[in-house]
Computed example of a mutant assay.
Amino acid sequence: METVFDLWFIRQYGDREDTELHIGIYASEADALAAVDALKGKPGFCDYPNGFEVIPTKLGMTGWQDGFVTNIGPPPKDAAGQAFDLPAWL
Rank of each mutant, 00 (worst) to 15 (best):
W8A: 05
T57K: 13
S28C: 03
E53Q: 14
D15P: 03
D6E: 13
P75A: 12
D85R: 07
L59A: 15
G24T: 15
G24C: 09
K77H: 12
H22W: 08
A79H: 08
K42I: 04
E29S: 15
P74Q: 14
K40Q: 09
Y48I: 11
A38Q: 05
P75H: 08
D66F: 11
F52G: 06
G67V: 14
S28Q: 04
S28K: 03
G24Q: 08
P49G: 12
C46G: 04
A34W: 00
T62L: 03
G63P: 02
D31V: 06
A27D: 14
A32T: 06
D37T: 14
Q65I: 06
E29R: 15
V54W: 01
T19M: 11
D47Q: 12
G63L: 13
D18Y: 06
H22P: 07
T62A: 07
R16T: 10
G14S: 10
G41S: 02
G63C: 06
D31Q: 04
G44S: 08
T3W: 00
I25L: 11
L90V: 11
A34C: 07
E53Y: 03
G51T: 13
P76C: 09
L39H: 02
L7T: 08
G81F: 03
H22A: 14
N50F: 08
A30H: 10
G60Q: 10
D31S: 05
E2R: 05
D85C: 09
T62H: 10
V36F: 05
P49V: 14
N50D: 15
D85Q: 11
L90K: 06
N50Q: 11
Y48P: 00
Y48T: 11
G51R: 02
D85Y: 13
V36M: 02
P74N: 14
L7I: 13
K40R: 15
I25Y: 02
A80Y: 05
L90R: 07
A83E: 14
N50R: 11
I23Y: 00
C46S: 15
A79R: 13
Q65H: 09
A35D: 03
D66M: 09
W89A: 07
G60Y: 04
G67I: 09
A80R: 14
T70F: 05
P76D: 13
T70I: 12
F9L: 01
F5A: 00
L86K: 14
F5N: 02
A35K: 08
I55C: 15
L59K: 14
V54N: 00
P74V: 06
T57G: 08
D18E: 05
